[in-house]
Write a protein that binds this DNA or RNA. Structure first.
Length: 504
RNA sequence: GCUCCAUUAGCAUAGUGGCUAGUGCACCUCACUUUCUAUGAGGAGACAAGGGUUCGAUUCCCUUAUGGAGUACCA
């Protein structure tokens, strides 16, 4: 029996959770649930200078909205806490020391200024400064200095960092579930800082220690971590621990042009890149899927197909179906361009599937928020409008005329529809409507159509101006449905208004 | 620059050593709705390039090109 699957999503609370991060969380969630495992959230806040207020709450709320909550985390708790690295601070030091004792790490006293200077000099010569085997003995660290010198520096309280002593002359084989086998020459790696001058570990140390302590079995993360994989594997080895399995997910790219999707792309191109709306301290607002009216099911379905597919032709998946179908082996290797149009298609689909009573309730709320009061039965018009709606707000877009009589007539359409003989025709229609007792769509339709054919008038001459009179534009459902819902009195009044408008 | 990763139509992708290379979005046409949507039916559109290996390569190998990531006392 293998051990229980435990995966973690480890965001850094430096701002709102990017949609790419949401996908990483989703894949972690699906993998965990598929294998009956646990999904853990861990806040990686080892960089205190980049901490942003509210970011952590945002992350949790976003996952809850999408219905993919964690089993363990800073809010839900668990047996492996604390789940914030800042609260685990005291823990890391001893592991860094352990590495020094075993000869896998060393103290380095080089100041940031000195290292920056080295980098600048190298850059000027077109070279890259790497802190590793080829120069570590020439720099200011415990490998180059005598024991007494090191002790003196340490005792005097001089600031230092702890660096990993990357092994030399080794071809390290790496395995990734998505990419398969890779290998890297350890000589190109640098001696990464594991423990910072401020007493905090870097991501690299903290993530290995925590993943080990939290008994993480699979690390599923973005491709931007692939270059760090060698270091991480080496760290597990240095500690003598079993490494988890790794899976690096392809990046999400902008819809057009080059480069990865960034937070500024969204509002520039008219789609959200965040699950929830986010307001910065400076007052900038980034739109979110939730506030834009997307359903969580649509966002999830869209997201899961970015970099994964089931290998069948099924495209619509409920969360349960995703859990059943998901497989890391079917994750793609190359970056996926984000397609906002496809998102809308999913959204349209899920809106159609939504319970009609629920949709009506949401639309009623929308109307209330807008301050619209009406005698019209909203539950009657929702089914009429819904198939052409992608968002709840589209119902208003499509059917506002049910609640407000048109005050103007679409210019282009009225040129086409309002002709010289139109007032006369509409006047006849008014008389016709007045005479209908059973004011239902079918009866009105029969009466009007019958009248048109028997008088040989031509449908266009009647239907177009009639629609324009009732709606104000060339849109909306069947004109007779509209007439019926508006009621005789209102329908007649709108037609009269149009007649008067034309007479001016 | 260096290291690692990738490359099927505008986008997301399926797939195979030999088939008309499949699907969805978007696009075009028609039908329906005498409007606009939605829907239905059709249609156009792809294996980055060049070398190998092979009886045969989109599929395997190499090179090039393009794209991406990393290259911090950030995650």
């Amino acid at each position: 029996m293998t051990q229980k699957v435990r995966v973690r999503f480890a965001p850094s609370p430096t701002g709102p959770l990017h949609i790419g991060g949401v996908r990483t969380a989703l894949f972690n969630y699906l993998f965990a649930k598929k294998h009956g495992g646990d999904f853990i959230i861990r806040i990686e806040d080892t960089d205190q200078t980049r901490y942003v207020d509210g970011a952590e709450e945002y992350i949790i709320e976003a996952l809850n909205w999408l219905n993919i909550p964690a089993n363990e985390g800073p809010v839900s708790g668990g047996n492996y806490g604390p789940y914030r690295q800042s609260e685990r601070k005291d823990l890391y030091r001893k592991y860094a020391d352990q590495l020094i004792e075993s000869g896998n790490a060393y103290y380095a006293f080089d100041t940031s200024e000195a290292l920056d200077a080295h980098r600048k000099n190298h850059e000027a010569e077109g070279k890259t400064f790497i802190y590793n085997w080829h120069n570590r003995l020439k720099l200011d660290n415990s490998l180059a200095l005598s024991e007494a010198e090191v002790k003196a520096k340490l005792d005097s309280g001089e600031e230092y960092v702890i660096r990993f002593k990357t092994p030399q002359d080794e071809t390290l084989p790496l395995t990734d579930i998505v990419r398969g086998a890779m290998k890297i020459d350890t000589n190109v790696l640098d001696d990464k800082v594991l423990f910072k001058g401020d007493g905090m570990p870097t991501y690299h140390l903290a993530n290995i220690v925590d993943d080990h302590l939290m008994e993480i079995t699979h690390v599923i993360r973005g491709e931007e971590w692939l270059p760090s994989l060698a270091l991480h594997v080496l760290l597990y080895r240095a500690f003598g621990w079993d490494a988890p399995q790794f899976a690096h997910l392809p990046l999400l790219m902008k819809p057009v042009g080059k480069g990865k999707l960034s937070k500024r792309d969204g509002d520039k191109m008219g789609f959200p890149v965040f699950p929830l709306e986010w307001k910065t301290a400076e007052g900038d607002v980034f739109s979110g899927y939730r506030e834009d009216g997307y359903l969580p099911e649509a966002v999830l379905n869209m997201l899961v197909f970015l970099g994964w597919n089931p290998g069948t032709e099924q495209e619509i998946f409920s969360l349960e179906e995703l859990v059943a179908a998901f497989d890391l082996a079917r994750v793609n290797k190359s970056g996926a361009k984000f397609d906002p149009e496809k998102t809308k298609w999913f959204q349209h689909h899920y809106l159609q599937e939504m319970d009609e009573g629920m949709l009506t309730a949401q639309f009623k709320k929308f109307l209330k928020d807008k301050g619209v009061t009406t005698a019209v039965d909203v539950s009657v018009i929702v089914p009429l409008l819904k198939e052409r709606a992608t968002f709840v707000q589209d119902l208003w877009e499509q059917g506002s005329f049910f609640f407000e009589a048109p005050s103007t007539y679409d210019e282009k359409a009225s040129k086409k529809a309002f002709k010289e003989d139109t007032p006369e025709i509409l006047q006849k229609v008014i008389e016709l409507l007045q005479g209908i007792e059973d004011f239902t769509a079918t009866t009105i339709s029969d009466e009007v159509k019958g009248w048109i054919t028997s008088n040989d008038i031509g449908f266009g001459k009647v239907m177009m101006p009639l629609r324009l009179a009732l709606v104000g534009e060339m849109k909306g459902p069947d004109v007779f449905e509209i007439s019926s819902i508006l009621g005789k009195k209102e329908a007649v009044s709108r037609i009269e208004k149009a007649v008067n408008f034309m007479k001016q």
